[in-house]
Amino acid sequence: MTISLVPLLVCGLLVAAGVTLLLERSLVRVLAGVILLGNGVNLLIVTVGGDAGAPPLLGRSDPDRMADPLPQAMVLTAIVITLAVTAFLLAMVHRAWQLRDSDEVSDDTEDRWVRLRARRGQLGERVRARQAEYDLLVAEQRAELHVEPTKGERLAHRRTDRRKLKHRQREARRQMRRAIRAERERQALALDPELEGDD
């Protein structure tokens, strides 16, 4: 066999152009890319399948100089299939346009949904961490308020302590709730309730 560069370069060019169009979002351009790519690959099959030669017609051409007919048969099949696919994709272009006035290939919504839920999950973890911090704070405060030693004072203090504690707790809880609400507002859906902390 002889490697002839020009047809090969044409193949490369067609493939490159096909790929370039294939990476677009418009279905028409993608289809154009597919056709270009298909033309390039068809040419490749014929080119690398054998040397150029005479048409493979018995009785007309010298059998030794004939081009290899097998790649031709393969490409013929491929061309017809591409034609049918073109028709189908054009119908799809039309339908897409009919539905949305655009032939853009849109992203999958469910996958975007998963990304959103991942984000929500992160926020939820943060809320939970803050809740834990708050619990710790309350516990510390409670411990702090219980240091008064003398017995007489203790009884007297206990009531005020308790009031003070309650007040601070309420305040902290209010802050907490506000924080949680702010976080939750950014969450469209509640977290998976089956998976919340052990109760």
Partner: peptide, 18 residues
């Protein structure tokens, strides 16, 4: 970028054929 990718693929295909 797309053209770059395209050229790489085209090159791969041609080299593979050769």
């Amino acid at each position: 970028l797309r053209l770059g990718i395209g050229l790489v693929i085209g090159a791969v295909v041609v080299v593979a054929g050769v």
